Simulated assay, not measured.
Amino acid sequence: MASEKAQLVPDERDRVEFEPAPLDRSSRFYVAGHRGLVGSAIWRKLQAEGFTDLIGRSSAELDLKDRDAVFTYFAETKPRYVVLAAAKVGGILANSTYPVDFLSDNLRIQVNVLDAAREHGVERLLFLGSSCIYPRLAEQPIREDSLLTGHLEPTNDAYAIAKIAGILQVQAVRRQYGLPWISAMPTNLYGPGDNFSPQGSHVLPALIRRYDEAVKSGAETVTNWGTGTPRREFLHVDDMAAACLHLLENYDGPEQVNVGTGSDVTIAEIAETISRVVGYTGATTWDASKPDGTPQKLLDVSKLANEGWTSAIGLEEGLRSTVKWYRDHVGAIRQ
């Protein structure tokens, strides 16, 4: 019995004295999900900032749902820093159709990586969540303390529950072991490397693909899901990557930090902007029989601003670069 009790007490040697400061550019840095939208942007940012020992594995090389494989990888590589950007993600259709997959896969990925990072002494870790963790009818703009104060949006509640579990695990590690791990909650992200597949994409890449294909086919009408009235905030993924590094070097606290622009547009407005950027001149109609999702999802980013960071890439500027990337890679992207 004594030995069982002893195992519940954190080893004081595991506690890290930490003051936010520039990270060591020569230390090993593992980006989990480094080929995804967010992970690839973080990888580019770290390279640009002079980090010389970046490591990552594709899902084919390392299945993060395989606990033994994850622990072996950490034992062999021993990273000092970790960003957990790996996740099973998708839009309303994918989340509504496969809720078990979104819950189970994300829980396993998170628990395996976070447990292995703890076991092998990772000093600094950033867990990436999603703004869908907040209640469907949260007061706008959504503050960090809105977490767990109301019902979730039912079209993506399984994914949201998994991400909430990740936040709580990071907080638990801080309490039990004193490690300076943190969480960041991005708003809707877009940019190079996004998922443009018809079945798995989020709203913005789905609209880019739909309008670009309409230009190519000469379609007179494009029909979008819902009413077009919900409001959404969009952040370019390169801005997100910059915010992640800023938080790793400047923030240490248990509460998740919202990352966004602080402004939003209606889905109809973003559709109109995308149609203009891609050069579509036909009509747009809306299928109100399809779900809208959350009426509004605008993050309060004052906490991040107080930490000294604000977004730099405007929406139309970001859309033009994303459309260009899509057209340059349309033959190779996920279908």
Results as ranks from 00 to 15, higher is better:
E19Y: 07
P20C: 14
D24N: 14
D24H: 07
R25P: 04
F29C: 12
G36T: 04
K45V: 02
L46W: 04
G50V: 02
I55A: 09
S58V: 09
S58I: 12
E61P: 12
R67V: 03
F74I: 05
A75W: 04
P79C: 03
Y81M: 03
V82A: 10
L84I: 13
A87E: 07
I92D: 04
T97Q: 15
Y98H: 11
Y98I: 00
D101W: 02
N106I: 14
V111Y: 15
L114T: 07
V122Y: 09
C132F: 05
P135S: 11
P135M: 09
P141G: 07
S146T: 06
L147F: 11
H151A: 11
H151C: 02
L152S: 12
N156F: 07
A158V: 10
A165Q: 09
G166W: 07
L168C: 01
V170Q: 04
V173D: 08
Y177C: 00
L179G: 01
L179K: 13
I182Q: 12
A184G: 12
M185L: 10
M185W: 01
L189R: 00
G191Y: 06
D194P: 02
F196L: 15
Q199K: 14
H202C: 05
I208Y: 10
R209G: 00
K216M: 08
G218F: 00
A219R: 05
G226Q: 06
R231M: 05
H236L: 06
L248V: 06
N250E: 13
Y251H: 15
D252Q: 15
A271V: 03
V278E: 08
L299E: 01
D300I: 03
N306E: 05
G308Q: 10
S321C: 10
T322S: 15
W325C: 11
I333Q: 10
